[in-house]
Amino acid sequence: MDLGISGKVALVTGGSAGIGLAAAKSLAREGCDVCVSARDPERLADAVVELQQFGGVVHAVLADVEDPTAAQRVVEETRDVLGPVDILVANAGGPPTGRSDEVDLKDWDVAVQRNLLGTVRLIQAVLPEMRSRGWGRVVTVTSSSVREAIDGLALSNAMRPAVAGIVRTLAREVGGDGVLVNNVLPGPIDTERLRGMSGGDDVVAARGRAVPVGRVGQAEEVGDVIAFLASERASYVNGVSMLVDGGHSRVIA
Score class of each variant (00 low, 15 high):
V58I: 15
R172N: 15
V103N: 00
W135K: 12
S37P: 02
E129G: 05
V251H: 06
V120K: 06
V139Y: 01
Y236A: 13
V81L: 07
V126G: 14
I166Q: 05
V74I: 15
T97G: 14
Q52W: 06
K106S: 11
V222A: 14
V237D: 04
T69L: 13
E76F: 07
Q72F: 00
E232Y: 08
G118R: 10
L27F: 10
A47G: 02
G239D: 08
L229C: 02
V48I: 08
L3Y: 03
D104A: 01
P68W: 05
R193T: 11
R168S: 09
S241G: 11
V75W: 00
D201E: 15
D46A: 13
L116N: 08
A90P: 12
C35N: 10
R233C: 04
F54C: 07
G118D: 10
A23P: 02
G200P: 09
A253V: 09
V139L: 07
D177K: 14
L21G: 02
E192F: 06
T13M: 02
M1Q: 08
L180A: 07
V61F: 03
D190G: 12
V251I: 11
L153W: 08
E129R: 14
V138K: 01
V146S: 02
A45L: 00
T140W: 01
V222K: 06
S231L: 04
V61I: 09
M242E: 08
M159P: 03
D202R: 10
V81Y: 13
L105A: 10
S198Y: 07
G4E: 00
V141I: 15
L11Y: 04
V167I: 14
A10M: 03
L3D: 02
T119W: 03
L194Y: 03
H59K: 13
V112N: 08
T140D: 03
D190P: 04
R160H: 13
L180M: 13
L153G: 09
I150N: 02
S231N: 13
S235L: 02
D151H: 09
G134M: 00
M242K: 06
R168W: 09
L127N: 02
E221G: 15
P41R: 09
V89H: 01
R193N: 04
A171S: 14
V65G: 04
D107C: 07
S241P: 03
V222C: 05
D109Q: 14
V110I: 15
A210H: 06
I19Q: 03
A111S: 13
V74C: 05
L185T: 10
F228A: 01
G136N: 01
I5T: 08
I150D: 00
T13D: 10
T13I: 09
V75M: 03
T13K: 06
A230L: 09
